[in-house]
Design a protein around this nucleic acid. Sequence first.
DNA 1: CATGTGACCGGTG
DNA 2: ACACCGGCCACAT
Length: 132
Amino acid sequence: MNLTDESKNFHHGVYTVVSLIPYGHVTSYGHIAYLLNKPQNSRQVGSALKHLSIVLQSLRQDLPEEERQDYFTVDTLPWWRVLSSAGKISPRGNSNAEYIQAIRLQEEGVAVSSGHKVDLDEYGWFPDEVDF
DNA sequence: CATGTGACCGGTG
DNA sequence: ACACCGGCCACAT
């Protein structure tokens, strides 16, 4: 995990935006990229979530010791509220994470169809901008 | 060092 | 509705 400063910045931005998605709502990889002023980098948003656990550890190490406790963890960051632009849970080969994601969403009142799809008109969160 | 792959997306045909 | 493409970049091989 050798990330440039710019890349660390981007990853941190992704996690910050994810932390802002309200309970019971969802957004898309592409919209997160848009909010970070990098609309072409939706794929990197997916990558940032795929490697969530390891990158969070890396970023945590860069923090002053007294701030480490307050940083995001894989348990507190609502990664399950991020879907594709079509409102579907992205398939992960191997992993059962996509089923966990469906369960987490349903637990907070988000209806997930048998096709692992969510109605974005009902549950979507797509602000034009956010403040950090 | 080079190439392929992928939690993606919007545009084009 | 579907398939392909280019843009982007971390990782694996």
